[in-house]
Amino acid sequence: MEAKGYSFMRQTSSIVLRSVYKEYRRDEFVIPVLADLDLEVAEGEYLALMGPSGSGKTTLLNLVAGLDRSTKGEVTVHGQVLGHLSEAEVTRWRANNVGFIFQTYNLIPVLTAFENVELPLLLTSLSRRKRREHVMTALRIVGLEKREHHYPRQLSGGQEQRVAIARAIVTDPYLLVADEPTGDLDRTTAGEILDLLELLNREFQKTIVMVTHDPLAAARASRVLHLDKGRLVDEVIQETRVSIAS
């Protein structure tokens, strides 16, 4: 019998995926990526997604972040059904609600740390002075307020990722999505970045959804979900491993 997607429901859910199915079309080929997936993530939860390459982690992350649309099913984030929004609306929604952290930092190389962090604020109507206040606050949180004039090439990998985190939080979004945030970092620096994410989750109540291959990174999350072939197959809550199959 074919296994049905498992449901992971929380009581105060702010991210809800219902029967989400996602497929990609490459020429005449149809490639299913996520199958009948149900998932709930509580407000302020720190969720790690693990699984082998091609298991659908990043696709799931993209759906939650409003970067992609499901083929079937419904994705609701913070009460907003993303499928009901037009492309322009979902872009605006992302600007207000989601912060992005990527494996390769993806800072704009021609802009300083300050200007990189300021970038999302350019979309707002904040004055120059207000923007500066917000940026400096974000840089202070990540411990780089003294590096505001540095260009990405003048920063270490860990510092670049901190700037990327500052950029992700500068608009005070509700949700942070991180795709392999420590994938390019050494163990010590990765630990610092994970400390920072933990801080954002604990102190600032940010809901975090993180994709990682690193078990040590996943161990920092309050919940770990394992995907395989587009299905959720396993869940670990804090240090209590729960076998879904059982």
């Binding site: 872009t91 605006r92 992302r94 600007a95």
Partner: peptide, 8 residues
């Protein structure tokens, strides 16, 4: 990245 962070 620009589009992801909200640039229309």
């Amino acid at each position: 990245i620009l589009k992801a962070i909200g640039f229309s």
